[in-house]
Nucleic acid binder design. Structure first.
Lengths: 316, 316
DNA sequence: CTGAAAGCGCTTACAG
DNA sequence: CTGAAAGCGCTTACAG
C-alpha cells in the first residue's frame, strides 16, 4: 500500500540505495538526481517506515513516560514539562498509564524492554515488581524515576527536597499559632516515609503535641485534638479534605490550619490559615530530561537528585 | 547487546526459524525442544524486538492519542478511559501532546504517517493543517476525532450532543428565573459554533434578551446586562470565571446564574444558581474505541456520532 | 557519483 | 517435526 524506497527507485530508474541517500540529503548524490528523486518522493507522498529505520539504527527516538493516571498534578505536571522540553531535543515523549494497577504497570515495563523506546521516565507503582524490572536492569536500559524510588537502591531518581519542605511547612504552622499537629500520611512509599519521619523528628525536637494517622484508617481522635490550635499536615489536599469532613465539619477548633503539598483544599473557607508547599515540577522535569540524555549517550552514575521546593505559599 | 533469536539458536543448536516457532508456541515444534528453547530463552532474558516484528507484520498494536495538553478534562478524561479499555483489547495507548502549538501538532501528524501506530485518536488543533493530514488520508490511515472535527468533512468524529445540552442548560436557567443571557463563547471550532448557534436560536425563539461575546474580547456590557436576573452561559468554567471577575465581582445583579460545560466555577459562592452539563466521557471513549477497531479491521464509513450528555447537574 | 551486497531481527510459506 | 530461503523496508560500508 504505502510507498517504499523500492517504488521510488523503480520510478526514478536508480538503485534503491541512491534513493535512500538522496532522501537523506547525502551530498554524494549528484544535485540534479537528488532533487529529482526528492521531487518524485514528495509527489508520491513517500513516508519513511520508522520501524525499518529503527531496526537498522537500533534507536527509536521515543522516550516513554509511565505513570499511574492523569488526575494528580504530581504525575501530570512533570509529564507536560517533559513533553515540551524533549520535543526540542528531538525526542518524542509517549505517555502511558497504568491506572494504579500493578499488573498493568508490569505490562508496560515488559513492553519497554522490547525496543519500543530509548529510555523511560517512571513514576513507579510500589507494589512488588522486581521481576518486571529485571530485563531492563540487565541491559542497562536508561531509566529515570520521578518523585519516588522503586524498592531498589541505585536508581536514578529526581525528587523534591521533601525534608526542607516539611520543615518549612511546620514552621509556618507554628508561627501561625498551631500547638497541636495531626500528620496525615501513608507509610507506603519513600516520599511519604521521608515526610513522616521528618515531621516526627521536627515536632519531637520542638516538644509539640502531635499524632500520626493515615487517611484511610479512620479512628477516634483524642479529645484534645478536637479543640485548640490545630494544624493538619497532609501530602495532598485530598488527605486534608477527607480529614476535615470526618472530624471538623461539625465542630470547629479555635484555630484550624491546613498545610499540604502542591495544592490547597478546595474549600478555602474551612480553614483559618492555608499553607502549600509547591513542588517545582518544571525543574524536576528539566533535571530528569538532562539525566536521561546523559544516560542515553554516555554512562551515567545512578544517583538521587533533590530539587528544592519552589516556595511555601500562604493561600490565606 | 540484547539477546536475539540468533543467539538462542546458536546455544540450542537449532535453526533460528525453529526458535521463532518455539517461542510463539507453534505446535509443530516437538514439545520437548519447544520447552527446552523456551527455558533457555527465559534464562537468557530474551525479549523480542518489536521493531523487527512490526516490519514483518505491518502492525504495531500501538494507538496514538494526540491532544493539546492535560489541563482540560475534555482532553484528559477521554484519554484515561481510552487507555483503560484499549489495554483490554490488546492495544497500547500512547498519549502525545502538542501544547496548543500548530507546529507541534503537525509534527505529530507527520510522525503518525511513519508507521508508528495502527491508528490515532485526535482532539485536533484547528489552525490550518490540511497538508499535514494529507498522507494520512491518502493511505486511509484509521483516525477517530474526538470532541471536534478538523476542517474537513467526512471524518469519523465522536462528540457530545451539544444541541440538546445547550437547550437543556438554557431551559434550566429560564426555570430558575433568568431574563437576560450572556453567551460567552469563541467562534473557533465546530463545537463552539454549534453551541452558539443553538443558544441564539433558542433564545430568539423564546424572545429572551441576550448578548453574545467571546471570553477574550472584553467590551462594555449594556447597562441592562449588569442588573436583573442574569444567566452566564459558557463552554467552560474558565470563561465564566473570567467574565465574573471583570463585570460582576464588584456589583451584583439581583440574580446571577452560571451555566457551563463539564465543571462549575471554582468559587461557588459567586453565583445564586449553578448548572453544569456533564459530558459522558466514558461513553465517548467507548464509542471512539469501537469505531477505531472497526476502522482497523474492516472498512468503516466515516460518520459523526453524537453521545448524549450525561445529565444536567444542579450544583446549587 | 552510483550500484550490488550484506545486514538489522524477525516471520512464514515451502520443502523435506 | 525442522531447516533453508525469502522477505518486511531501510542503511551503509565497499567497490568501482
Amino acid at each position: 500500500m504505502a510507498i517504499t524506497l523500492k517504488n521510488i527507485s523503480g520510478i526514478c530508474g536508480v538503485d534503491i540505495s541512491t534513493v535512500s541517500r538522496a532522501l537523506r540529503n547525502d551530498l554524494r548524490v549528484k544535485p540534479e538526481t537528488r532533487r529529482f528523486i526528492q521531487k518524485k518522493a514528495r509527489e508520491l507522498g513517500y513516508r519513511p517506515n520508522l520501524a525499518a529505520r529503527n531496526l537498522v539504527s537500533g534507536k527509536t527516538l521515543n522516550l516513554w513516560m509511565i505513570l499511574s493516571d492523569l488526575n494528580n498534578p504530581v504525575d501530570r505536571e512533570p509529564a507536560q514539562f517533559l513533553s515540551r522540553s524533549l520535543h526540542l531535543k528531538g525526542y518524542e515523549l509517549l505517555i502511558t498509564l497504568y491506572h494504579a494497577e500493578a499488573k498493568k504497570f508490569n505490562h508496560l515495563l515488559s513492553r519497554l524492554s522490547q525496543h519500543v523506546a530509548d529510555g523511560a521516565f517512571i513514576i513507579p507503582s510500589l507494589e512488588y515488581s522486581a521481576p518486571a524490572y529485571l530485563p531492563l536492569f540487565q541491559n542497562d536500559f536508561p531509566l529515570v524515576f520521578i518523585d519516588r524510588q522503586p524498592l531498589f537502591d541505585n536508581c536514578t531518581t529526581v525528587t523534591t527536597d521533601n525534608k526542607a519542605a516539611v520543615t518549612d511547612l511546620l514552621r509556618k504552622c507554628l508561627d501561625a499559632g498551631a500547638d497541636r499537629f495531626i500528620i496525615i500520611t501513608e507509610n507506603d512509599n519513600s516520599v511519604s516515609r521521608l515526610r513522616l519521619k521528618t515531621a516526627i523528628e521536627f515536632l519531637t525536637r520542638n516538644n509539640s503535641a502531635f499524632i500520626q494517622t493515615d487517611a484511610n484508617t479512620v479512628r477516634e481522635l483524642p479529645p484534645k485534638f478536637l479543640t485548640g490550635n490545630i494544624a493538619l499536615l497532609g501530602s495532598s489536599r485530598l488527605d486534608i479534605e477527607k480529614y476535615f469532613q470526618i472530624f471538623f465539619s461539625r465542630r470547629r477548633p479555635s484555630l484550624l490550619i491546613s498545610a499540604s503539598f502542591d495544592s490547597p483544599p478546595l474549600n478555602t473557607a474551612d480553614f483559618n490559615r492555608i499553607f502549600v508547599a509547591r513542588q517545582d515540577f518544571e525543574s524536576i522535569a528539566e533535571t530528569a530530561a538532562d539525566l536521561m540524555l546523559e544516560k542515553i549517550s554516555g554512562s551515567h552514575q545512578a544517583e538521587t537528585v533533590e530539587i528544592p521546593r519552589k516556595e511555601i505559599i500562604e493561600i490565606k
